[in-house]
Write a protein that binds this DNA or RNA. Structure first.
Lengths: 178, 178
DNA sequence: ATTTGCATGTAATCTGTTACATGATTCA
DNA sequence: TGAATCATGTAACAGATTACATGCAAAT
């Protein structure tokens, strides 16, 4: 499905950048819904260059250190926009190991089962605090056409997801205790 | 991480079954949080047999058709229980193509953006109805120690996830329209 | 000087999907 | 007798992770 390709094209479409910067974007902006290591990104950039979807210029940091600054080509932009507009059927539910554990958790003694859930609850509470803190950076809701507005939408989505996980876990714990 | 291994062991631990039956279980019981095709299951069963985690007996359906009915070994059960009790750090957020699309959606014209979200909303509403219908099969909440209780917990989780997605999408659409 | 961060790549392995391949059984 | 389902496998490919590998730049 080449999702990595389109994630990269989308980022480079926002702003020309190097493989290193892309890696950082995956760790920050996209981390709530996509991941990729540099070991996946560099080969993909090579491939995209060969396909003519991106091109690069060499920039020098300091005296000799070279970096490749990639920008999207007209062809690449068309390809990306085609992907973006095409409305796909819903993806299969994403895999979640923790839900698998819960599915088998009746085989654990009650106390261990509770620990499993309480531990997960704590982690999601911490994450929610972190996300809500990020949200305070938005003083107002940005203009709809901007990258910041989309950013705001996905952050809102991440917050709602964490709130849902917390509500579910609390309900699970309550039912296991009663 | 061998998650497929433990998903299979967990199912066989509930009840001895064939590769074909396992495939069906993945499509029904586990479909809300894990997927696997038969082309992944059969080789894994072979590997688990070699590792001594499962063993099988040949059963005959009809006159000649052979099926391998797998059961878990003592070693396999210990391995599985170890995996189940070990509390792991939270997994990285699962990948979701749709959220990636939303992240880039400000590049679409307003109408197409709305179509993207409305279409997804419809699909999640349909899925929610389906899950709620499944929930009606539980007349009462099953006993905590049973497989049915865990089943109930993950179904509840799936419902809450769909409700969250619907609430998020409605909010996104509202913000895009205003 | 040493550590942290910038910067780019490859190799080996693991995990997962799609397609290929075969044949028996059951029900309409 | 034909279609749907039962039943088991392999092969090729795609996608992703972990480890290996190197070297410059900036800050302490």
């Amino acid at each position: 499905m080449r999702t990595l390709k389109y994630a990269i094209l989308g980022l480079i479409n926002q702003k020309s950048m190097s493989g290193y910067e892309l890696t950082q974007q995956f760790e920050s902006a996209l981390c709530e819904f996509w991941t990729a290591n540099h070991s996946q990104i560099y080969p993909e950039l090579k491939k995209l260059t060969e396909e003519g979807a991106v091109e690069y210029e060499i920039a020098i940091s300091g005296n000799v250190l070279e970096k490749k600054v990639y920008s999207i080509t007209e062809q690449g932009r068309e390809d990306f926009m085609g992907w973006l507009a095409k409305d796909e059927p819903m993806e299969p539910t994403p895999k979640e190991i923790f839900r698998l554990r819960v599915f088998f958790s009746n085989r654990l003694e009650a106390k261990k089962r509770e620990i499993l859930m309480e531990n997960q609850l704590l982690q999601h509470q911490r994450r929610l605090r972190h996300l809500k803190n990020n949200q305070t950076k938005f003083k107002v809701i940005p203009d709809k056409q901007t990258d910041e507005f989309s950013d705001y939408l996905v952050l809102m989505g991440a917050i709602m997801r964490e709130e849902m996980m917390i509500a579910w876990l609390e309900q699970c714990i309550k039912l296991c205790e009663s």
